[in-house]
């Protein structure tokens, strides 16, 4: 909860800093200069463009990985890793988390932990192999499945 305390103190300069263009990533004390002729705006534009190009390249890359490696664990891991990088880029630059992380981390960190943890715990019961018990819990003990030869508890 310390972030809120932090907020409590940060407010007072945040108020006047950007009087006219009441704008939000005006994090206190970090000035953008006058709105109309922001010298940094070309730099920003370039950053956005770079991210866009990177996203396109990454999309192509995941497509290429799929073509090259086909469907297997390595390609899946690589492709998902690329997806995570893409998502991080969008969040960090496009969603301005590079400026705003210090304001929203208090809520984003728990939700990030919670979402990953939930999927892991659910997988433990629903997808991973836990011996005899698992197939029954997944409703996999029917005769049709049994005929396939390898039971569902193998081959992961």
């Amino acid at each position: 909860m310390s972030d809120h305390q932090h907020g409590d103190h940060a407010h007072s300069h945040g108020i006047q800093a950007h009087g006219d263009h009441s704008h939000s990533h005006g994090d206190a004390g970090h000035s953008h200069g006058a709105p109309a002729h922001d010298p940094s705006h070309d730099a920003k534009f370039k950053a956005y463009l770079a991210v866009f190009v990177a996203l396109c390249v990454f999309t192509a890359a995941s497509f290429a990985i799929n073509l090259a490696l086909g469907h297997n664990l390595t390609s899946a891991a690589l492709i998902l890793a690329v997806a995570v990088v893409k998502a991080a880029l969008v969040a960090y630059i496009f969603m301005h988390l590079n400026h705003d992380w210090r304001l929203v981390y208090g809520i984003m960190t728990p939700v990030a932990i919670l979402s990953v943890m939930t999927v892991i715990i659910l997988s433990i019961d629903g997808a991973l192999v836990w011996g005899e018990n698992a197939p029954a819990a997944r409703g996999l003990n029917d005769p049709i499945e049994a005929k396939v030869g390898e039971g569902p508890s193998k081959g992961h």
Binding site: D125, G126, R138, G139, D142, I144, E145
Partner: peptide
Amino acid sequence: PPSGLDFGNYHSGPGGGQPLLWQH
């Protein structure tokens, strides 16, 4: 569940999911 459900003489369509998932 993958086997679907039998209600006496009635059979449901084929399934595939996990009843336990709801509980989770």
